[in-house]
Design a protein around this nucleic acid. Structure first.
Length: 560
RNA sequence: GCCCCCGUAGCUCAGUGGAUAGAGCAUCGGACUUCUAAUCCGCAGGUCGCAGGUUCGAAUCCUGCCGGGGGCGCCA
């Protein structure tokens, strides 16, 4: 019996009690899905619900009385072995061993689809994340969004949403000019400009631009007039940087469906169209020679300039056009992941959303994640773009590998500032929880290989009543929790819940393993349904571990 | 001055109103001739920053304060 089935049974019990008048409650007050939770302590049964506590007030009945009523009826449900009323009115439910054990078969048969749910079915979501500037390699902060964002995309998809992963490529504006000037300066052997970028990658790209020009038979960019030279470095430099970023993300197993170029919005007239639309809606005004959007009308702190008095579009103008473009592409919801240093944009972005006539936090959602700090010997490391002393995606992956890096970045709440000590992470990688989880998977795989060799086959038998050990009960309960965790993590946009769950599941598995509830026969022992049934449980665990790791983009090894 | 995040075990962090607040690491003590010991078992470790409030019940919600981080441009 899965928790979902138990929840349905509870719903049925509630409904029937209301229908026959024994529960004085308006039928509309019966929750569509009765929440069922794993109690913290095993003494409180396999599953527990606080539904009696929640409905008591509306029914005008003491919680315990209501709980007793529900308990009485729930006891008659097939698969339920016992129901206790505890504390202020909790229902502690124990499942029949065989009914609980059935879950092993359910999971194995569901395979990769186990844990998927339809809570977001039909939603078209555009998820924008990373969007690091093409003026340098992806630094440590961007890597966090790559790991968390990609995992979130997987979670949303697992919950039935139609998701497009998108990267907004800021290839327009002053920062690109600075980038181009930095390349040019380096090619000439000069220092980086005061407001420019430094580091080895600038030298590498500058050299590559020169080599490309020579190979293409174009004139040496350094012989061109300043403006043309800068343009040559800009065009080709951005292209090279972009290719580099894409390649690194692919190595990190993050694939975007759309790389959206900011420049395209300005080139295509999309910005003007977006401004015209807002003007029609009456939210634009002119002042001090500039064009403004009256965001204060929608709760922003101050109005925002969208076309500067020098005639150039302000940065937010691109955002306006970009948001409108996403909506016109048919997305119900645009989700944008930003670093904490951008939290000040929320007000103006939501105001912009409202100005277009949309609903903030429904059509547009902004997720703020805290920063990643680098620490060395207990001291924060200062990173400077100009000096080129930034820690990049490469540095992290070289130090710990993709699996450990993705896991480490995805297992913390994005509300938490992460302090990363690269030396420590590299040195202590064996203590990383990712190994604990992956090792559990490798163990299940090892048992699978040995079982095949010894002729233990699932299809020869399954007797779920044999899964009667406390460690099996606990493991089954953990397995049964997966669907709820996935749905909740997707709904709350919190992928770290999956990682934490996997650590619990792995713990339940390791504990079962060490109880010597052997899957494989010893010596001349005959293969029985006990072995086969435990193999079902082993394989069910393996499936859930694999499905969970997949949601995090972490590999599930056959061997370690 | 205003806005956002954080403050939970020695350290790193879970815990979106529920029962005795948990895990990993670190320390200490145990368990390998049989499915992978990258594991398991045990000991120890807490005024959940402080003070009020809301209610059957608060680490969780509200208010104020203290401490740490980040942000408040006709930059991008």
């Amino acid at each position: 019996m899965t928790p979902a089935e138990l929840s349905q049974a509870l719903h049925a019990v509630l409904t029937s009690a209301v229908d026959d008048g024994s529960l004085p409650l308006d039928p509309s007050a019966v929750p569509a899905t009765v929440s069922v939770e794993r109690p913290r302590s095993r003494e409180h049964g396999d599953w527990a619900t606080n539904v009696a506590l929640q409905l008591a007030k509306r029914a005008g009945v003491p919680p315990r009385t209501l709980a007793d009523l529900l308990a009485e009826r729930l006891r008659g449900v097939a698969g339920v072995a016992g129901v206790d009323v505890a504390g202020p009115g909790f229902l502690n439910i124990t499942l029949d061993t065989a009914a609980a054990g059935e879950l092993a078969r359910t999971v194995v048969e569901a395979g990769e689809s186990y844990g998927r749910n339809g809570t977001l079915a039909g939603e078209r979501i555009n998820l924008e994340f990373v969007s690091a500037n093409p003026t340098g390699p992806i630094h440590i902060g961007g890597v966090r969004w790559a790991a968390v964002g990609d995992s979130l995309a997987r979670l949303l998809q697992a919950s039935g949403a139609d998701v497009v992963r998108e990267y907004y490529f800021n290839d327009h504006g002053a920062q690109i000019d600075r980038f181009a000037r930095s390349l040019l300066a380096r090619a000439r052997g000069e220092d980086a400009p005061e407001d420019g970028y430094g580091g080895q990658y600038i030298a590498d790209i500058a050299q590559q631009v020169m080599a490309d020009a020579a190979a293409a038979g174009e004139p040496d960019p350094l012989t061109l007039p300043d403006e043309e030279a800068q343009e040559a470095f800009r065009r080709r430099g951005v292209e090279l940087m972009f290719g580099e970023i894409k390649a690194k993300l692919a190595e990190f197993r993050v694939h975007f469906d759309v790389y959206f170029h900011e420049d395209a919005l300005h080139e295509s007239g999309a910005v003007e169209r977006a401004v015209a639309r807002l003007r029609e809606l009456g939210h634009i005004f002119e002042a001090d020679g500039a064009t403004w959007l009256r965001t204060t009308e929608f709760g922003d702190d101050k109005d925002r300039v969208i076309v500067k008095s020098d005639g150039n579009a302000a940065y937010i103008a691109g955002d306006l056009a970009y948001y409108l473009d996403k909506r016109e592409r048919g997305f119900d919801r645009a989700i944008i992941m930003l670093g904490a240093d951008h939290h000040g944009y929320i007000g103006r972005m939501m105001a912009m959303c409202a100005a277009f006539g949309d609903t903030p936090w429904t059509n547009l959602e902004i997720l703020i994640g805290q920063m990643v700090n680098l620490v060395k010997d207990g001291q924060p490391v200062r990173m400077s773009k100009r000096a080129g002393t930034v820690v990049t995606i490469d540095d992290l992956v070289d130090a710990v590998g993709v699996d450990a890096a993705r896991y480490a970045l995805a297992r913390s709440s994005t509300d938490t500032t992460i302090d990363l000590d690269l030396d420590l992470l590299a040195r202590a990688s064996n203590d990383n929880p990712v190994h604990y989880v992956r090792y559990a998977h490798a163990r299940t795989a090892a048992i699978g290989r040995n079982a095949a060799e010894l002729g233990v086959r699932r299809e020869d038998g399954f007797d779920p009543a044999q899964l009667d050990h406390p460690s099996e009960n606990a493991l089954l309960a953990a397995i049964g929790d997966f669907g709820r965790v996935v749905a909740q993590a997707a709904q709350l946009r919190e992928p770290h819940r999956v990682a934490r769950y996997l650590e619990e599941l792995a713990a339940a598995y390791h504990k079962w393993y060490d109880q010597n509830r052997r899957v494989l026969p010893m010596g001349d022992e005959e293969v029985t349904d006990v072995h086969r049934t435990r193999l079902w449980l082993n394989d069910a665990t393996r499936q859930v571990l694999a499905n969970g790791l997949e949601l995090l983009g972490v590999s599930a090894p056959e061997r370690m």
